[in-house]
Write a protein that binds this DNA or RNA. Sequence first.
DNA 1: AGATAAAAATGAAACGATTCATTTACGGGA
DNA 2: TCCCGTAAATGAATCGTTTCATTTTTATCT
Lengths: 333, 333
Amino acid sequence: MKKATMRDLCDETGLSLGTVSKYLNGGQLKEKNRKKLDEAIERLNYRVDEYARGLITNRTRTVGIITTRLDNLFYSSIISDVETKLYEKGYAAIIKESGYDLSKEIKGIEWFLSRRVDALIIIPVGRKKEDYEILNEAEVPVLFLDSYIEGVRCESIVTDNEEISRHAIDWLISKGHKKISIILDKDNPYTAERRLEGYKQAFKENGMEEEDYRIYRINESIDSGYAVAKQIVTETDSTAIFASNYISTVGVVYLLNELDIRVPEDISVLGFDDILITSLYRPKLTIINQPIEKISQLAVDRLFELLSEENKEYKTHLLENELIIGKTVADIN
Amino acid sequence: MKKATMRDLCDETGLSLGTVSKYLNGGQLKEKNRKKLDEAIERLNYRVDEYARGLITNRTRTVGIITTRLDNLFYSSIISDVETKLYEKGYAAIIKESGYDLSKEIKGIEWFLSRRVDALIIIPVGRKKEDYEILNEAEVPVLFLDSYIEGVRCESIVTDNEEISRHAIDWLISKGHKKISIILDKDNPYTAERRLEGYKQAFKENGMEEEDYRIYRINESIDSGYAVAKQIVTETDSTAIFASNYISTVGVVYLLNELDIRVPEDISVLGFDDILITSLYRPKLTIINQPIEKISQLAVDRLFELLSEENKEYKTHLLENELIIGKTVADIN
DNA sequence: AGATAAAAATGAAACGATTCATTTACGGGA
DNA sequence: TCCCGTAAATGAATCGTTTCATTTTTATCT
């Protein structure tokens, strides 16, 4: 028993292809024919073949999303939000992972373009515009989340990483901290560099020197964050750790638990992106939050604007972050 | 500038459709022609249209996956694993969310079937076989994860929820607990009922009565778990809480933190599915773990077996769980 | 050079829908 | 009953590939 086609419906009902097609797309039919068709559809288990339809209409009502890894809750929260919003507008999201691997990400983009998605949302892992030459050929709107790369043909939504980082470090310094280690994520080059920039700027503003920088780089794994945190705690005299992204924050907290380190008595801690963390860990972490809901709303809004615009004009959006003060930073003045 | 087609390649190179197609699918060409074609592909930015290809080949090398919500880390971990394994075999995973909404899940299935996925992997939210009648018409293999529903045409991979629950509660009782509250998730009817069954059985085996049951049901949200945990802690004299799934475990831990409840002095706690939890929370939670890696490996293995089999014979697999003993259960004998 | 087998290349038909310019059916007024 | 305007139905052409039975080219051996 093969899949039924529109032609089978025609045979069953005596109607023509055009009529069947019209009905399937919401057109009016005479009551009698409508009934016959409904019955035939039911009986034959007919279902539109989107491949045949897409081939001719060239619209798939489909948005391709590339995230890094599903088990990165920060990104998954955004994507989940975006998916829901797209669904409400009749669009389907197709989600793929890059696994922090640029070549897999690019293959994902090609896969999507071959599949005629109407638009692309990407959490990119590349770092230079040469990585994204493929996008110059893409005639669909493209939206980067959490990363901005000069010269790439796409819309970008990022938060003010530099400013919030500067602000947070400045605040740390005002609490008397001078030996502040920052943990950066190699796999997220854009945000990492912006956050490092803010760190440096705060140092500068407070008259501290380059020799005072304490910079550690990890790749995007909890274990990696854990290991570096251990190094900082056991081998240096840092008074504060700034875990500058979600995964490293989890890694640091993990270490604090494992080694039974008292916070903030033994060391002060500042984290990034509170997904679950302050629910599960005590004392309440001092943490920087990005506006997930705003990011996803803006993403969807802009996407539909771009879809409807004839001459797409790409913009870059900068959203504000927030420092939530918990109980993990000591005043050592 | 429109998208280039194979016919454009023919015009550019003087070759025929058949030849171009053959090359695109890995066939041999004379050196001279190969070169010409490569150049033309490059120059015209040609990319295969998978819609046209899929229409005729009827194979899309694509697996549809429906999960509940991306921010449920337990499921996302499995899906992420599965995606990676499929990718390595040349298959693309298309991921969609049901949001714990059966009608959205069914629409997702329809969407996938229309899109000719080669197979389906579902973390279902339905509870009876009538919910899945649509699958009887599906001619592709279907795999349910974390749920088994009698009479549904699909393969199922589940863990031995009943046995591990019985074992864990039995162990709790052996530590002197008699007032044990279990939190069940309405949105995961299958696992919830199996786990409840194990709870009841342990009670029976230990000569306890039905009047001793303390059963609480929540829906799949951390807040809901939090609220019920609060109720248990503040309004009852329970000596132990069994949070019988991931989300409720997170909710319970959240509450313990908020109210500064001492564990296990004030109350003993048993959780389910340790994703991040024991990394972030202290004392180390006593928790039941499901074998994520085994689940995803088995899922992929069976998927490919089913894809290659002519007459698909669906099985149900039961994997073993593990009780990891931490420090959140007091011996009150 | 000719015969022959193997390798390459050809191109029409097919996949299952939508589109649109025409044709047919219907209902109401004179 | 006839006419006419509108609504409904028609069906050939089309989208961009793959397939496969044929034909053409190339290479090898006498």
